[in-house]
Design a binder for these strands. Structure first.
Length: 635
RNA sequence: GCCGGGAUAGCUCAGUCGGUAGAGCGACUGAUUCGUAAUCAGUAGGUCGCAGGUUCGAUUCCUGUUCCCGGCACCA
C-alpha cells in the first residue's frame, strides 16, 4: 500500500505505511516538529500522533497559528480536568471546550471550589504540563465507553454517550498519560508539555448541565490560555484596563448616578448623569423629527385585560409588575406598543394616512430576575427610544431600509463604526401560523437585501409576535452590544384590533413595526461611558468646560466668561474655590472635563482666556470672542 | 431564579483568633492669593447591610434575610 502526501507547496511524497504528522514534520525539520501543534489533513485538523492512513493533502499547523491556539486552549481544559480529578477524587467530569480567550471545564462535585482551590489546581496543572504526558487517541466501541464511564461513576459522561451521541458516530477517547482519559472529538497536542505556561485560571461559576435550568448545577472553572507568555500578560493588562472603564465605577467617580437597595435595578440620576441623558435624548428627538415620527405618550399602567389580549401576559407575566386599585388589577407597562395601538385606534385611518409613525421615550418596568441585574446595563426600570410604524405590507421594505439608514447614522454620530446586523427568526413559543412567519421573515430579508447589508440569521431568537432585525455594535475594546432593533409584527394589530380603510373601502389590518435605535437609554448611556472610558465627547459631556481663576481678583472675570459661554448654549461651571491652579487642573482633569479655561490677572486685563483641552498638556491663549466661537463649534 | 463570594466613615481600603473600630482621599473650619495635575494646620464623621440566636459581652461565631459582585439560566 502506498500513501501519497501532498504538501502545501504542491510537492508529493509517498509512504509505504501510515505515517503520523509528527513524523512528517520531523522529516522536514526538527524545528518544525517542535513548533508543530496539529496537522491539517484534507482541511480537517488531526492530532500529530494520529496515523494518516490514506493519501491526503496536508499542512503542518504551528502553535503560533489561530487554529493551533484553539487546540492549545482545548488541551488546557483537559489538563485542568485531570488536575481537578487528581486533587479531588470523586469529582465528575463533563465538558470542557476552548472559548474566545481561553477555556473552561464543567465539573460535578458537591463541595464548591474556592479561590484557594483554584490556585492549587493551577499549580497541579503546571505539574502535569511538566510531566509532559503523551496524549494519545483511541477509538472505542460505544458499549465499552458506556461501561467505562458507568463503572468509574462518571454519570454525566455516561448520559452523554447514551443521549447525546448518535449510535453510528465513532467515539474517540483521548488518553493523557497512563491512566487519565476523557471522551473528546479532539484534536489535541501530542503531549501535555506542548501546552506551555501561558495559561491562568481566573474564576469559578455555577452552570446548568446541558445549559438547562431544570438540570443539575455544575461548577465551571474558567481559564485563559495563549500561545506565549507575552500574549497572556497583554490579555491580563487589557482586563485591568476594562475594569477601569466599568460604568459603575466611573459613575461614582464622576457623580453621574447611583443605585440603592430600596430600588434594585433602578437608577437615581444625579445632575451630571442626567445632563448626559438630556444630550442623548435631544439628539434622538431630532432623529424622530427628521424621519417623520410624531412623539406621543401613553399611560404607565393599564388594566391587565389589555395585556392578556396583547399576549404579553401569557408570555411574560412572571416578569411583569402589577398593582391593584378598587378591585382592578393593572400591569405596569413592560412595553409601549399596546399603548401606541390605543392611540392609533382612537381615530379612523385611511390607507392614505399610512405609514403612521409614533415615537416615545417610553418608560418601562420589567421584573428581571435578580441575578440578571447589572449596573445600568440591565435594569428593571428603563426607557426605550421606542417607535411604532403602522403600515401596509408593501410599505415594510421602504420603512425598514429608511430605518437602517437612520440607525447607522446614529451609531456613527455616537462614535461607533463597527455594526453587525442579525436577523432573529421564529422562536418555539410564538403566536401566529407558519405561513405568517414565512411572510414576516421574508419581508425582513427582502428589506435587508434592499438596504444592501450583509446579515447573519439567528434561528429561534425572534420575539413571540414576530421576527426582528438586531443591530450589534462593537465598542472601543471589542465588546459587542445589541442595541437597535426592527421588528415585524402582524400579531399585535390583529389582537388589539387595529385597522385602516383601503382603496375599496374595506377594513384591513396594518402591519406594525417596532423599532428602537439606542434601545434602552440606561444601557446605551452605560455603553457610552465604557466605550469612552468616561471621557465623553464634548457634545455629550455633562460639564463641557470649567472656568478656573488663578487668583480671586479674577473671579469676576471668570463669572463673566462663564455667563457668556452659557449664553452660547454650553454647559459651563466656574471653580472659584480658594485653591491653587495646580489643584484645580488636577481635579478637573480627573473629572474628565473636555476644556479647562484658566483666567488670571493677565487674561482679565486683556479680555482673553487660556484653554487647556482634555488630554493635551499644551495651553492656548486666545481672545474671549475667539474662544467662544471656537467652543461653539465643538457643541 | 440557581451556584459561589461579598457588605466596616461620602470614596478606596485596613482591622478585630469575641471585650462596641483605624488610615488615605473627600467634607468642614482657619491660614494662604500661590500661572497649568494634590499649600499648610485643625475639626467633625461609623447601630461594622438588616433581623434573630449563642454568649457576661457579637462588627467578629451561627441561622435567616436584603442588596451587590462573578458565573449560568432569562432578556417581549
Amino acid at each position: 500500500m502506498s500513501i501519497e502526501i501532498t504538501f502545501p507547496d504542491g510537492n508529493v511524497k509517498s509512504f509505504d505505511a501510515p505515517v503520523t504528522g509528527l513524523a512528517i514534520a520531523q522529516g522536514i525539520s526538527p524545528g518544525l516538529a517542535k513548533k508543530a501543534a496539529v496537522i491539517k489533513v484534507n482541511d480537517e485538523l488531526w492530532d500529530l500522533t494520529r496515523p494518516i492512513d490514506r493519501s491526503a493533502s496536508v499542512s503542518i499547523v504551528t502553535r503560533d497559528k489561530p487554529e493551533a491556539l484553539e487546540v492549545i486552549r482545548h488541551d488546557a481544559a483537559h489538563v485542568l480536568a485531570q488536575a481537578v480529578q487528581e486533587l479531588f477524587p470523586g469529582t465528575q467530569i463533563t465538558f470542557g471546550p476552548a472559548t474566545e480567550v481561553g477555556f473552561y471545564y464543567d465539573f460535578a462535585r458537591d463541595t464548591p471550589f474556592t479561590d484557594a482551590d483554584l490556585e492549587s489546581i493551577e499549580a497541579k496543572m503546571r505539574e502535569i504540563v511538566k510531566r509532559d504526558l503523551p496524549i494519545t487517541r483511541e477509538i472505542w466501541p460505544r458499549e465499552q465507553v458506556l461501561e467505562f464511564f458507568q463503572t468509574t461513576g462518571e454519570r454525566f459522561k455516561a448520559e452523554w454517550v447514551s443521549e447525546g451521541i448518535r449510535p453510528d458516530e465513532e467515539i474517540s477517547i483521548y488518553r493523557q498519560g497512563e491512566k487519565w482519559l476523557d471522551m473528546c472529538l479532539g484534536p489535541h497536542l501530542p503531549s501535555t508539555g506542548k501546552l506551555g505556561t501561558a495559561f491562568k485560571l481566573i474564576r469559578v461559576g455555577g452552570v446548568y448541565w446541558r445549559g438547562d435550568a431544570h438540570n443539575a448545577q455544575l461548577q465551571r472553572i474558567y481559564g485563559v490560555a495563549f500561545a506565549t507568555d507575552d500574549e497572556l500578560k497583554a490579555y491580563l493588562k487589557q482586563v485591568e484596563e476594562a475594569e477601569k472603564r466599568d460604568h459603575r465605577k466611573l459613575a461614582r467617580q464622576l457623580d453621574l448616578f447611583h443605585q440603592q437597595e430600596e430600588a434594585p435595578g433602578m437608577v437615581f440620576w444625579h445632575p451630571k448623569g442626567w445632563a448626559i441623558w438630556q444630550a442623548v435624548e435631544q439628539y434622538v428627538r431630532g432623529v424622530y423629527r427628521k424621519s417623520g415620527y410624531q412623539e406621543v405618550r401613553g399611560p404607565q399602567i393599564m388594566d391587565v385585560s389589555l395585556w392578556k389580549k396583547s399576549g404579553h401576559w401569557d408570555n411574560y407575566h412572571d416578569n411583569m409588575f402589577f398593582t391593584e386599585s378598587e378591585k382592578r388589577t393593572y400591569a405596569i407597562k413592560p412595553m409601549n406598543c399596546p399603548g401606541h395601538v390605543q392611540i392609533y385606534n382612537a381615530g379612523l385611518h385611511s390607507y392614505r394616512d399610512l405609514p403612521i409613525r409614533y415615537a416615545e421615550f417610553g418608560g418601562c418596568h420589567r421584573n428581571e430576575p435578580s441575578g440578571a441585574l447589572h449596573g445600568i446595563m440591565r435594569v428593571r426600570a428603563f426607557t426605550q427610544d421606542d417607535g411604532h410604524i403602522f403600515c401596509t405590507l408593501e410599505q415594510v421594505e421602504g420603512e425598514v431600509t429608511a430605518f437602517h439608514q437612520q440607525a447607522m447614522q446614529v451609531y456613527q454620530d455616537f462614535g461607533f463604526d463597527d455594526i453587525a446586523v442579525k436577523l432573529a427568526l421564529r422562536p418555539d413559543k410564538r403566536l401566529g401560523s407558519d405561513e405568517a412567519w414565512d411572510r414576516a421573515e421574508n419581508a425582513l430579508r427582502a428589506a435587508l437585501r434592499a438596504a444592501g447589508v450583509a446579515w447573519e440569521e439567528l434561528p429561534g431568537e425572534g420575539a413571540f409576535y414576530g421576527p426582528k432585525i438586531e443591530y450589534h455594535m462593537k465598542d472601543s475594546i471589542g465588546r459587542s452590544w445589541q442595541v437597535g432593533t426592527m421588528q415585524f409584527d402582524p400579531m399585535m394589530p390583529e389582537r388589539l384590533n387595529a385597522e385602516y380603510i383601503d382603496e375599496q373601502s374595506q377594513r384591513q389590518r396594518p402591519i406594525m413595526l417596532h423599532r428602537a435605535i439606542v434601545g434602552s437609554m440606561e444601557r446605551f448611556i452605560g455603553i457610552l461611558i465604557e466605550h469612552h472610558a468616561g471621557s465623553l465627547p464634548f457634545w455629550l459631556s455633562p460639564v463641557q468646560a470649567v472656568v478656573a481663576p488663578i487668583v480671586s481678583d479674577a473671579d469676576g472675570y471668570a463669572e463673566e466668561v462663564c455667563a457668556l459661554l452659557k449664553d452660547a448654549g454650553l454647559r459651563v461651571e466656574t471653580d472659584l474655590r480658594n485653591e491653587k491652579i495646580n489643584y484645580k487642573i488636577r481635579e478637573h482633569a480627573t473629572q474628565k472635563i473636555p476644556v479647562i479655561i484658566v483666567v488670571g490677572r493677565k487674561e482679565a486685563e486683556q479680555r482673553s482666556v487660556t484653554l487647556r483641552f482634555r488630554g493635551v498638556d499644551a495651553q492656548e491663549t486666545l481672545s474671549l470672542d475667539e474662544a467662544v466661537q471656537r467652543l461653539k463649534t465643538l457643541r
